[in-house]
Design a protein around this nucleic acid. Structure first.
Length: 358
DNA sequence: AACACGGGGAC
DNA sequence: GTCCCAGTGTT
């Protein structure tokens, strides 16, 4: 399937192509392991174009691992706001503290050392070790899976354990001792700019003549795709609770969905319940206060990975009770102009931007 | 092995 | 609408 001369050809062609056609990306202009680490975390399940502005701002705000370790989680989450998968920010913050306390501020240089840090798995460890420290470690991401599946005409479900083992093995055999970081980035670059999911540009591909899927005209069929389950839709109602010009917000628990972010109090509609009743009940359960629901403000549709929501916002008046945290970890009355100081989920931001609350 | 975890881009 | 994106952690 893969002999020494084939390996040499793939390495040589890919590296040469990358040297000539690789994009000029911000994280390719640095050799700072911390900066490369940030980029790799942000790039998990997130496209290059989306990451770039976040990467620049984050590094400006937290220029080194010590600064990040000393920062408050709230500040870190605010910088991450809108990027999604907020567990990445929480883990990154946690890992920065570990690096400062246990490693004298030096990012571990081995794949094993890196993988011991929260938020760094096999892919990210290989990426940082090879790119920042020149270690001969393989990587396997969505791009590499696509390229290897096509190059070797592999038609099994790439998520299966057997497939993972085989794909990691191929990646390990291919990565060269000489320029492991450049080679790994070349694979991802090829996947992102040439070997597309649909309509791969085989005429531009440096390894097209070596590609077995291409040889059989099956490049568009690989890697094998598996059907996804349908996403359920939930109906949510939240209260914009005003009191003397200020609005009530609370902070979600530190783990799980949107952990650590701020939001307007509210929750899921239950069977047989009106939306107004939902708001009243949820606000009471969440913060122990009684509100009067004044009027419907806006409806927002928002899709998450495993479900969708129809989010209704209601203007409410505070009637009685002092807000106390039950389901949340903090609660605050804030002036509308100060809302932007807190990190909110996208669906909540849509509410106060559409209403021009700030 | 299966699922939770965001938001946006491409078609 | 669907699929995917420089994946990781939990159960």
């Amino acid at each position: 399937m893969i002999d020494a001369s084939l390996v040499r050809k793939i390495r040589r062609r890919l590296l040469s192509w990358y040297d000539n056609h690789g994009r000029d990306l911000p994280w390719r202009r640095t050799d700072d392991p911390y900066a490369i680490w940030i980029s790799e975390i942000m790039l998990q399940q997130t496209q290059v174009e989306t990451v770039q502005p976040y990467y620049q701002r984050f590094l400006k705000r937290f220029p080194d691992v010590g600064t990040l370790a000393r920062a408050r989680l709230d500040t870190v989450l605010k910088q991450w706001e809108g990027l999604g998968y907020y567990g990445r920010a929480r883990n990154m913050h946690k890992a920065a503290k570990v690096v400062v306390q246990d490693y004298e501020g030096q990012v571990p240089t081995t794949s094993e050392g890196l993988m011991a840090l929260p938020g760094i798995g096999r892919y990210t460890a290989g990426a940082i070790a090879s790119i920042a420290f020149g270690r001969c470690e393989p990587i396997l991401d969505g791009n590499v899976i696509r390229i290897l599946s096509r190059l070797f005409r592999y038609d099994q479900d790439p998520k299966s354990p057997e497939a993972q083992e085989r794909l990691w093995d191929w990646a390990t055999r291919l990565v060269p001792k000489g320029r492991p970081g450049a080679f790994n980035q070349a694979m991802m670059e090829l996947g992102a700019t040439v070997c597309h999911r649909q309509n791969p540009s085989c005429l531009l591909c440096p390894v097209a003549t070596l590609c077995q899927a291409r040889h059989h005209g099956e490049q568009h069929l690989l890697p094998k795709r598996v059907k996804r389950k349908a996403r359920p839709c939930h109906t949510i109602a939240v209260g914009i609770v005003y009191k003397r010009g200020r609005i009530l917000i609370d902070r979600r628990k530190p783990e799980g969905l949107l952990g650590g972010l701020w939001e307007f109090p509210g929750g899921k509609q239950e069977p047989g319940e009106s939306l107004e009743e939902t708001v009243k009940r949820e606000v009471k359960e969440e913060l122990g206060i009684t509100v009067s629901v004044k009027r419907h403000l806006i409806t927002i549709h928002h899709a998450y990975t495993h479900f969708e929501i129809e989010l209704h916002a209601f203007l409410c008046q505070h009637m009685r009770g002092t807000p106390v945290c039950h389901a949340s970890t903090a609660v605050k009355w804030v002036w509308p102009k100060d809302l932007e100081r807190y990190a909110f989920p996208g669906a909540n931001k849509k509410i106060f931007q559409a209403l021009d609350l700030t």
